[in-house]
């Protein structure tokens, strides 16, 4: 959640502003090159000639978390990697999104049973917005995940959550 969120009452200005900001954010998602394993190759294929993620404005793969909005966790997360993953996530500026790409990040995948060193799902480490199943997911599947993420961003608002006041009151009691 960035500084502008959850400050103003809903109104004409806020909704127009929402539309403009969301349009900007949707069309320029900068993913982080966070390839861990097999899925990273499909993530590269998405960025390469045939599938061309640039069509959706998400082709600017950044090598540093500080410049990226989206972390595509592509591949198996191990315990040795988990703390690094968390640190990288914390370094990303808000608003930040996470796509869990592949069966391993969704829930351990083929390494669920005998994988003593595999984290059984990246959502145990960082919050996940979208899950893209598959082992590995086809590039089209990742693009679908990206478009669902764009849908999500499009429907975000800067306005105050009407429930937030109620929630605060409940918590105060």
């Amino acid at each position: 959640m960035s500084w502008i969120d959850n400050r103003f009452e809903e109104g004409l200005i806020v909704t127009s502003l929402d539309w403009a900001i969301n349009w900007g954010r949707t069309s320029s998602i900068w993913p982080m090159t966070f390839g861990l394993a097999c899925c990273a190759i499909e993530m590269m294929a998405v960025g390469a000639s045939r599938f061309d993620i640039d069509r959706f404005g998400a082709g600017a793969f950044r090598a540093t978390p500080r410049q990226s909005d989206l972390m595509i966790v592509a591949g198996t997360v191990t315990y040795k990697m988990a703390s690094r993953l968390k640190r990288l996530y914390n370094q990303m500026p808000d608003p930040k999104y996470v796509i869990a790409m592949g069966a391993c990040t969704v829930g351990g995948g083929p390494y669920f049973k005998h994988g003593y060193h595999v984290v059984k799902g990246v959502d145990l480490v960082v919050p996940v917005d979208f899950y893209v199943p598959g082992c590995p997911p086809r590039p089209e599947a990742l693009l679908e995940g990206l478009m669902r993420l764009q849908d999500k961003i499009l429907h975000q608002t800067r306005a105050k959550d009407p429930m937030s006041r109620v929630r605060a009151e409940v918590l105060a009691k």
């Binding site: 394993a37 097999c38 191990t78 040795k80 390494y111 994988g115 003593y116 595999v118």
Partner: peptide, 25 residues
Amino acid sequence: GYLHRCAEKIGENLQPFQYIPYTDR
């Protein structure tokens, strides 16, 4: 070791034809 996925342990627990998909990975 940041991608240590326990392939050898899995090999001791599955039949060889079941292990083929793990060699892919």
